[in-house]
């Protein structure tokens, strides 16, 4: 299950989350982001109960996007209590995404 982040639920979904949250910053006009979508969903299943997977539409919420200093998408940021732990820019195939998320997860 992928949570969609909005201005209204940002605090409860990201900042107050007990689990770390991996945010997929995307936009409808971004081709590689469209490709990232199904991969993100597949990997989400493997981290069920460990990491919350969430998506944020950068076009709809520029102020949340700017808060993370994002200037390139797709961009995945792992957060703990709303703070950035690490990020990955650009499309990642499934296995690389899994490795990257696992590595970031271990640093928490």
């Amino acid at each position: 299950m992928i949570t969609h982040i909005t201005k209204e639920n940002y605090k409860s979904v990201v900042v107050e989350s007990k689990l770390p949250v991996l945010i997929d910053f995307w936009a409808p006009w971004c081709g590689p982001c469209q490709m990232m979508g199904p991969v993100f969903e597949e990997v989400a299943k493997e981290f069920n109960g460990k990491i919350v997977f969430a998506k944020l539409n950068t076009e709809d919420y520029p102020e949340l996007t700017n808060g993370f200093g994002i200037q390139g998408i797709p961009c995945l940021i792992l957060t703990k209590s709303g703070k950035e732990v690490g990020r990955a820019v650009g499309f990642l195939p499934k296995d690389l995404l899994k490795q990257k998320v696992q590595k970031l997860y271990e640093t928490i």
Binding site: P32, G72, I73, P74
Partner: peptide
Amino acid sequence: LKGRGVSACATCDGFFF
């Protein structure tokens, strides 16, 4: 600085500029 101002995808990232 990739993803922080350096980009190879204008259609993806133009919006942020």
